[in-house]
Design a protein around this nucleic acid. Structure first.
Length: 193
DNA sequence: TATTGGATCGCC
DNA sequence: GCGATCCAATAG
C-alpha cells in the first residue's frame, strides 16, 4: 500500500531508514516504473551545513520548508537531478535523498533512458535513478501522496542496514561526519562502504 | 550584473 | 583523476 503523509512526518532519520526496502513508483504516459529503495541519506534542519537549507529559505530549497511528503528535486553539476522526499513538520527544513534503487517494473524504459543494459547501472546513484525514472525539475514540489510518484510498502523489510557518513559533503565541517547515510547490507549502494 | 562551485557521473 | 555543463547563491 501507498505510504501516507504521516509516514513522512516522522523524524528524518527514521524515515530514511524505513524507506529502505520500500518501492518507489513512477507513473508516466511513457510507462510505469518501480524500484526498491536501496540507499538513502538524511538532511536535517537549518544547522546541518551539508543541507541546502543551511543558509535559510531560498527559491531553490523552498519545498524543504513545506509540509512532508513532497518531492524536492534540484539540478546538480549542470547535468544531473537529485530526488529528495521532504520530512517532518512544515517550516522545519528536512528531507531524505534517494540514492539508489533496485529496478523492478519498467526496466526496458529505464534501459532506453539510461542507454545501459546492465540492470545494476540503471538506478545506482541519485543522478542515475532520476534519469531512469524521468525525474527532472518539473517534479519539484510534486506530492508523493498523489498518483504519479509515490512509495509503496510491499511488505519486505531489509535484514540489515548499514550506517555511514554521507557522500560528497566534505565542505560541511563536522556535519560531514554525521552517520546519516543508510543502505541495505549486501547491495553496496553507490560509492564505497 | 558577474563570479563561483556543487547532496554526480562516466570516461581517461 | 578529471571534464562536462548550468543554475542558484553570493557578492558587488
Amino acid at each position: 500500500m501507498k505510504l501516507a503523509r504521516e509516514f513522512y512526518e516522522q523524524p528524518t532519520i527514521q524515515v530514511a531508514q524505513q524507506l529502505l526496502g520500500k518501492c518507489l513508483v513512477r507513473v508516466q504516459s511513457e510507462g510505469m516504473m518501480s524500484g526498491i529503495i536501496l540507499e538513502t541519506e538524511a538532511y536535517i534542519g537549518l544547522d546541518d551545513k551539508a543541507s541546502h537549507a543551511s543558509r535559510g529559505l531560498t527559491r531553490r530549497n523552498a519545498v524543504m520548508f513545506g509540509p512532508a511528503g513532497f518531492a524536492y528535486v534540484y539540478m546538480i553539476y549542470g547535468m544531473h537531478h537529485c530526488l529528495n522526499i521532504v520530512t517532518e513538520r512544515e517550516a522545519y527544513p528536512a528531507a531524505v535523498l534517494i540514492r539508489a534503487l533496485q529496478p523492478g517494473e519498467g526496466v526496458e524504459l529505464m534501459r532506453a533512458r539510461r542507454r545501459k543494459q546492465d540492470i545494476r547501472l540503471l538506478a545506482n546513484g541519485p543522478g542515475n535513478l532520476c534519469q531512469a525514472f524521468g525525474i527532472d525539475r518539473s517534479v519539484n514540489g510534486l506530492d508523493l501522496c498523489g498518483g504519479t510518484l509515490f512509495v509503496e510498502d510491499r511488505g519486505c523489510s531489509p535484514a540489515d542496514i548499514v550506517v555511514t557518513t554521507r557522500v560528497g559533503v566534505d565542505y560541511a565541517g563536522h556535519w560531514k561526519d554525521m552517520p546519516w547515510r543508510f543502505y541495505i547490507a549486501g547491495h553496496r549502494g553507490v560509492s564505497k562502504p
